[in-house]
């Protein structure tokens, strides 16, 4: 069964369109990243999927049930953006409450906290936790009861690189067991290779829905060859390569992916005029900017 099915989902807030004909699906075991700048509609879409706010129109199916229905709630976990648990409770007490609310034995709290690396801090108050530790409490509660769909709103914001990698390792394990994951982020660099598919939202519209490799292909952004010329030879190099841009001793050459080898051959032909060269493929940020700005705004 498809974990999440969205089709033509629209939502307006007092005349302003927040979501415009959004549609995509998530299959079991898939990790999908939802990307977009602030206000692109990521959190709104997530809240609609969770049934916290209603959509104006469109079809939403969560594990075959209506969003927010008892059937959907029992199998969907959520991690809100910037969630702050009550500072007076300890991590263990907070997780025990969430276990009870899901109808699970509270004894599982220790194992859950250990799985997110909080075993040592379990009996300290959440008020003393760092932002990364609070985020781990949030992840621990999202793991309760083996949910089949996890909706995580900017789960890695505020995490250091090591914590982020550990976080994705936990998600990989869940996905391997067949859980679907929808996580949002405002930067492609944060999700990179750890997701199966990337959906880019801009002003409430889906601008792209593909794998990272597919996005690269679609964007067809030029590869940049940066040539360091011998002192005084920069002008000549630029002229012979018909390069557009020059900056001091370096010459920048933009070329499409399929003419890259030809251009490299051209550069090699210059021989002693060239000191060094670097080939820079389009960065993740370039690709993201390409899609999120495609609507001309």
């Amino acid at each position: 069964m498809t974990s999440l099915k969205l089709s033509q989902v629209c939502k307006t807030f007092s005349g302003l369109s927040a979501l415009d004909a959004v549609g995509f699906t998530i299959e079991p075991g898939q990790r999908v990243a939802l990307l977009g700048h602030n206000g692109a509609g990521k959190s709104t879409l997530m809240k609609i999927i969770l049934g916290l706010i209603p959509a104006d129109s469109g079809v939403i199916e969560v594990l075959g049930a209506a969003p927010g229905s008892a059937g959907a709630r029992a199998q969907v976990a959520y991690l809100p953006e910037n969630v702050a648990f009550h500072p007076a409770l300890t991590g263990a007490e907070q997780i025990r409450l969430y276990l009870r609310l899901r109808g699970e034995a509270p004894g599982g709290a220790d194992a859950l906290l250990e799985s997110v690396g909080l075993a040592d801090a379990a009996n300290r108050r959440i008020g003393t936790y760092s932002k990364g530790m609070r985020q781990r409490v949030g992840l621990a509660q999202a793991l309760i009861g083996h949910p089949r769909l996890l909706v995580l709103d900017e789960p890695t914001s505020g995490l250091d690189p090591v914590s982020r990698r550990e976080f994705y390792e936990v998600l990989d394990g869940l996905a391997a067991e067949g859980a679907s994951i929808l996580l949002s982020s405002h930067a492609l660099t944060e999700v990179e290779a750890r997701t199966d598919r990337i959906v880019i939202l801009s002003h409430g519209r889906v601008m792209a829905n593909d794998t990272l490799a597919g996005l690269r292909r679609q964007a067809a952004l030029p590869t940049r060859i940066q040539i360091a010329a011998r002192p005084g030879a920069a002008d000549e190099v630029a002229e012979r390569l018909a390069a557009g841009r020059r900056n001091g001793v370096t010459v920048d050459l933009d070329c499409a992916a399929d003419e890259k080898l030809q251009r490299l051959a051209d550069v090699t032909a210059l021989g002693p005029l060239v000191d060094d060269l670097e080939v820079i493929p389009p960065s993740l940020d370039d690709i993201y900017n390409h899609f999120s700005r495609r609507d001309g705004q």
Binding site: L52, A84, L101, R102
Partner: peptide
């Protein structure tokens, strides 16, 4: 304000 209401409302409660 803490953001916990959105979370707890997604629980079967």
């Amino acid at each position: 304000e803490r953001g916990t209401l959105a979370l707890i409302l997604t629980y079967p409660v």
